[in-house]
Computed example of a mutant assay.
Amino acid sequence: MPATPMPTAGSLQVTCGAHTDPGLRRPVNEDALFAEHPVYIVADGMGGHDAGDLASAAIVEVFRPLAGRDDLTPDDVAAAVERAHTAVADIAVNRPRGAGSTLTGVVAVRQDGVRRWLVVNVGDSRVYRLLTDRLEQLTVDHSVAQELVDEGRLARHEMSSFRGRNVITRAIGQERSRADYWLLPIVTGERLLVCSDGLTGELTDEAIRAGLALGGAPGQTAGSLVAQAIGHGGRDNISAIVIDVVAGGISPRQEDTTGGLPFADEASVTVEVSTLRSMRTRRSRG
């Protein structure tokens, strides 16, 4: 998908490009992506043909009505996640292997009148951010491999070759699989990557950083990253969305620590924002 200018209300301007591929070993692409401002999400379906692809597609359909809106709140996104859980659970009924999906991405929302990115994650697809030459993973995997990294029993660079790398601990459609959310400032000049584990399972963080830093248009960059993952084996479906903030964000000079405002999504979709804290500890794991 070529880079697409996304004019938005106010002065915020972003461009976006996306690419998805079934890879070399999977007959069906169970990934689905959606990239229409202010919603940029990737869903990696599970359950095999006629289940995993339907699950990821159902998530996209839940989020599609949010496109084009400038008044979204964190509550709106949390409510969409709950609807996605219901939609995927309905697909899983009477299917021997069940159905599920990861969900990750960013949505531009308004919190207390301020426009921010809301990062959402369930599963092991990821969101990264490149600012100047520094790459940061903004999400934390819900996976057995990540738990082993957190416990000091597995090095981060070993995650992609770990035998149980595809075993996740949360999924859309499964009970007690709550989403993690973070509110982040929108920064002029930043480049975001939303991707499935088919990309991160083949490319190291340094390879991802180098690919994002080359400076190509978002669509070209997304396609190049996917092609590199295929070249390294293409063992899974591969999806990537690249988003550039062209104007309208805060100055990078104001963004010293990339602080996040985490909040918990409880039984209701009411969002309560906790005290500002740094995300550095979370990102330094492994």
Rank of each mutant, 00 (worst) to 15 (best):
P2H: 15
T4G: 00
M6Y: 08
M6E: 14
L12P: 01
L12C: 03
L12Y: 05
T15A: 11
A18L: 07
T20R: 05
D21W: 13
D21R: 14
L24N: 14
N29R: 07
N29K: 07
L33I: 15
A35F: 11
A35H: 15
A35S: 13
H37A: 12
V42W: 13
G45H: 13
G45F: 14
G48Y: 12
D50C: 02
A51R: 00
A51D: 00
G52C: 06
S56Q: 07
S56F: 10
A57H: 11
E61S: 13
P65M: 11
P65K: 14
A67V: 04
D70S: 15
T73G: 04
D76C: 10
V77T: 06
A79T: 03
A80M: 06
A80V: 05
E82K: 11
H85T: 04
T86A: 12
A89F: 08
A92H: 10
G100L: 09
T102E: 02
T102Q: 04
G105N: 11
G105I: 00
A108W: 09
V109L: 06
V109G: 08
W117Y: 15
L118C: 10
L118N: 06
V119G: 00
V122S: 08
R126V: 02
L130T: 03
T132C: 01
T132G: 05
T132H: 09
D133H: 13
D133E: 13
R134M: 10
R134P: 03
E136Q: 09
E136P: 02
Q137L: 07
Q137N: 06
V140A: 11
S143G: 06
S143T: 04
Q146P: 01
Q146S: 08
E147G: 06
E147Y: 09
E147T: 07
L148I: 04
L148C: 05
D150I: 00
G152P: 13
G152V: 00
R153V: 01
L154A: 03
E158R: 04
S160V: 03
S161L: 03
F162G: 01
G164S: 06
G164M: 11
R165Y: 05
N166K: 12
V167M: 11
R170S: 04
R170E: 02
E175L: 15
S177F: 02
D180R: 12
W182T: 01
L183A: 06
P185V: 05
P185H: 12
I186D: 12
V187R: 09
R191G: 02
R191N: 02
L192D: 07
V194S: 03
D197G: 04
E202F: 11
E202G: 05
T204H: 08
D205P: 03
I208L: 10
R209Y: 10
R209N: 13
G216A: 07
G216H: 13
G216L: 09
A217R: 13
P218C: 08
S224K: 02
L225Q: 04
H232E: 10
G234A: 11
N237E: 01
I238R: 14
I241L: 02
V246C: 08
G248F: 13
G248Q: 09
Q254F: 14
Q254K: 14
D256Q: 14
T257V: 15
D265L: 15
E266S: 07
S268M: 04
V269L: 09
V271W: 00
E272A: 13
R277Q: 04
M279Y: 09
M279F: 12
M279W: 06
T281I: 03
R285Y: 10
G286D: 05
